[in-house]
Design a protein around this nucleic acid. Sequence first.
DNA 1: GTCTATAACCAGATAGAC
DNA 2: GTCTATCTGGTTATAGAC
Lengths: 184, 184
Amino acid sequence: MAAGTRDRILDTALSQFVARGIDGVTVTDLEHGAGLAAGSGSFYRHFRSKDDVLSAVVDREIDRAASRRSAEPVGGSLEDHYAWALDNLHRMRALIALLVKDGARLPHLDRVQTVLAEGGTRIDAVDLADRMARGEIPVRDADAVAAVVLFAVVGHHLAERFFGGTLGVDRERFAAALASLVSS
Amino acid sequence: MAAGTRDRILDTALSQFVARGIDGVTVTDLEHGAGLAAGSGSFYRHFRSKDDVLSAVVDREIDRAASRRSAEPVGGSLEDHYAWALDNLHRMRALIALLVKDGARLPHLDRVQTVLAEGGTRIDAVDLADRMARGEIPVRDADAVAAVVLFAVVGHHLAERFFGGTLGVDRERFAAALASLVSS
DNA sequence: GTCTATAACCAGATAGAC
DNA sequence: GTCTATCTGGTTATAGAC
């Protein structure tokens, strides 16, 4: 079942925007990527403008991120929790790439940031403080430790995406080391 | 002592490229930012093309980052070292923004990545393994711990820029928490 | 070195035949 | 819905006077 032209435009727009930025992609590029004649205005039978297709792309990715978000494990180990956060960030990598490349120009910027915060970056200082109070992990500056963990997770993801590598440390190993540091 | 026109073009090019991306800045914008008549071709008396000024901007930032890097303190505590790395990354924020926004189009991409990796943290896995062998810090997966430290430091910057805020944890407190985690 | 003026080109967008 | 053809405007880059 071949996707309709509108969906093919959305698909090629997402991948091209992520790869080359919004300004790096022309309407002609989108037509070509969707199997339409390059330079024909056929694009405009499906979207009113380039901004219009950008808005549709972002809306679709927000819906996808919200719907396929796996349930956050409750009461699990720290390691599982960190692995979950890294996986979620990886699933939302297209949206993250759009945000960091063209953040200021994105429509629904607040909704994008909300979805990302809920899906990947909520590492709770309160949870850490609870574990410290129960003697589960050593007592440290809980807010500062939460910040270290959050930025380590985000940094790992962004490095994977933008800096060409993670020093050979995959997500599982990274999560394990993070849990080891916090736990003792 | 007013800077020459060439330097003023470089200064405005750096700040405008960082703010709006390479494609978001026209040669006319650069002329205006450098105090030249907008739309006059005076820019071309100083640079052959827009790519040429981009290359000059990146070269200058690489040189600046490299010269700052030599100011690294030697033989200090882990905490001092992490604080130094955070300050250094903060000074290189323009280069980081260029890399994230327009990475694929940057000239000397490999040199940019090398400078940032060296300037962001010198805590390599070998140094950590040495400290572990001497009993200075607990024995853990040295490569993975080095990755956590590097990405925490880098993420502290990137997350502030793209996800909003540092959770109220300043650089000194962040460095102290990072050192505490690695040291015990 | 800077200006006015403009050439050459490319991108977003529209009109109308089929 | 897709095409050919075109308009309009903005961008890079050059020519030549001062």
